[in-house]
Amino acid sequence: LLPSFEIGAWTEDDVYCWVQQLVRKGDSSAEMSVYASLFKENNITGKRLLLLEEEDLKDMGIVSKGHIIHFKSAIEKLTHDYIN
Rank of each mutant, 00 (worst) to 15 (best):
L38K: 15
T79K: 15
C17M: 12
Q21L: 03
E41I: 08
P3G: 15
V63R: 11
C17P: 01
D14F: 10
D27T: 13
S28R: 11
S33I: 04
L22D: 01
T79Q: 15
D13F: 02
I7Y: 00
K25M: 08
K58I: 10
R48E: 13
H67G: 05
N84F: 08
Q20P: 00
I62H: 04
Y35T: 05
K58Y: 12
L2M: 13
T79Y: 10
A30Q: 15
Y82K: 10
M60I: 12
I83C: 14
L51W: 02
Q21C: 03
P3R: 13
D56C: 00
T79H: 14
Y16R: 03
E54I: 01
K72N: 04
F39W: 15
S28M: 14
L52Q: 00
I68S: 01
M60T: 06
E41W: 04
M32W: 15
Q20D: 09
K72Q: 08
F39L: 01
L2R: 12
C17Q: 12
E53Y: 01
S4Y: 09
S37Y: 07
K40N: 05
F71L: 11
G46F: 07
K72E: 00
F71S: 04
T11P: 00
V15M: 00
F71D: 02
L22M: 11
E6A: 06
L78T: 07
G66Q: 15
Y16N: 06
S28I: 15
W10G: 02
T45M: 00
M60L: 10
H67D: 12
L38C: 14
I44Y: 03
F71H: 04
G46P: 02
L51C: 13
E53T: 14
R24K: 12
Y82C: 10
D14W: 01
Y16A: 10
S37D: 15
D81Y: 07
E53L: 03
Q21N: 13
I7E: 04
L78P: 06
S4M: 09
L49C: 00
V63A: 11
Y82Q: 12
K72G: 04
G66M: 11
I44F: 01
W18E: 03
G66K: 15
I7M: 05
M32R: 01
I44G: 01
K25A: 11
N43D: 02
K77E: 15
K40P: 03
E54D: 08
